[in-house]
Design a protein around this nucleic acid. Sequence first.
RNA 1: GGUCCCGUAGCUCAGUUGGAUAGAGCAGCCGCCUUCUAAGCGGCUGGUCGAGGGUUCGAAUCCUUCCGGGACCGCCA
Length: 581
Amino acid sequence: MNLFAEIRALVVDALGQMAADGALPAGLDLSAVSVEPPRDAAHGDMATNAAMVLSKPAAMQPRAIAEALAAKLAADPRITKAEVAGPGFLNLRLSPLVWQGVVKAALVDGAGFGKSDMGQGAKVNVEFVSANPTGPMHVGHVRGAVVGDALSNLLAFAGWNVTREYYINDGGAQVDVLARSAFERYREANGLEPEIREGLYPGDYLIPVGEALKAKYGTSLLDKPEADWLKDVRDFATEMMMQMIREDLATLGVKMDIYSSEKALYGTGEIEAAIETLRGMDLIYDGVLEPPKGKTPEDWEPREQTLFRSTAHGDDVDRPVKKSDGSWTYFAPDIAYHYNKVRRGFDMLIDIFGADHGGYVKRMKAAVSALSGGKVPLDIKLIQLVKLYKNGEPFKMSKRAGTFVTLRDVVEEAGADVTRFIMLTRKNDVALDFDFAKVLEQSKDNPVFYVQYANARINSVIRKAREAGIDCSDATLAGLDLSGLTHEAEIELAKKIAEWPRLVEIAAKGNEPHRVAFYLYELASDLHGLWNRGNDDLSLRFYQEGNAATSATKIALARATGVVIGCGLGILGVTPVEEMR
RNA sequence: GGUCCCGUAGCUCAGUUGGAUAGAGCAGCCGCCUUCUAAGCGGCUGGUCGAGGGUUCGAAUCCUUCCGGGACCGCCA
């Protein structure tokens, strides 16, 4: 149930009646009419811009429309007051009945409270992480993994049919480097001195790969030329790396639906087919690119390449799909891969990339636009850097991986729940500071703690009530007469709860899971505020000593808050805690 | 040089996609523990929303020109 949608329907209905009565011209476009919470609570519970939006097309004074609309709306039992304000806003005050109904709805819907059907079951593919299979995941990957996973949860909650996908970059030169690096570890496992030359991956994580190679091949590869072992070792090492990456993701609670392989695109004709499809649209040609404007690279010289006319779909320059030696650029399999996603029938594609891929966005969108006939939107979220700190000092930690901090280091230090929540406390395109000391601190500076603490308080009061013999099951609470919830402080909290379904839709619409984290912080703040008012005003405590009926009513409100915290944390992929320790 | 992102309180950041007097947290100041967890709550102080111009009933939000910071910029992935 989305209260705002409900009231908007009421407004639209009233406008329809006005048109029928001749108070408004018929056939007005009402799509711009919105019902929103006013920024200033003193203006009421909800405000509609209907009069201002319709003023011009209806050729009427906004206030005249607003006053007629107010009269219609005031007849509805849910509306206690409708007043015209400012340039033509219509401010509505809602009856306590409405807010009590929200509490009840949260208790009835439980974990499904706020679910939306706005996605209408449309198929969306969220591609994220897609780290090269050449080593363990590091900090740089963590944020993308968390954002992608939480966004997937959010979209599923909002009614999309979500597929989480990982694109394995196992087709380029980097997996050959991996193979050579692993081969040195294989030699090491056989008692030889490894030669970790410049350009190879030095990390200790390849030692077990070397040992596994020894277990499989014994000494049989040692004297063979690279050409004889490269493919086998590459496949073997890549598979082990992917295994490690899957485990890394699991420690964060991320589980992919599909792992797609770049390598698998080669040799199947998929790349050729994608390029030919573009060629059929006259979007592929052989040509010579202009040098980059301004600063020309020193070794730049014109070369003929096969190019994609991405400028036809909004890019700034055309992009090469073949190198001058005739082999594919990285872009070509990427085109094929996205074409593959389009052909699998997705209605919407989302890519989560690192910020260093910013230059890639336009060409990728151009490719998808061309290959889907403009029908499948591609949204690319760029994930900015995470800067690690410990007590304000830049933090370096390198246990085993050479020069970088691994995902496991982070999760072991901070825990998966804390890591996930903090990674979602910023918009994706803003850099984020992650201070190990701060994120573990138990104070309100720390949003994770603050939200968890609110949940713990709710559970604490429910425990206490249960000990006193009060039935606090959701079903029982939902069946109560909640007309006793009338204090403005209690209504305040119920209003915040009422915002949840709307927030889900706003966040899903913009593919912005961070909004959930901010909302939860605000909700927790309202809960803490009400809780503390119980210090001064005993009648505001959730648990009322010796009064089971009143306690149950108030606990219904607390529990409804807990339900929403549970829904929100569920989307973020964070486990709610029952009590603080 | 080009493209993209960012610029909001002393600091870290939100800002419901164009709504009314721009909001939180931290820091600073003043209060609140005989208490369902004070690991918390309330109040005060603090803003030319980087700058100028434009669009309209209305702009932090959209357009434009600057300024400042970052990322990227053919045959790396």
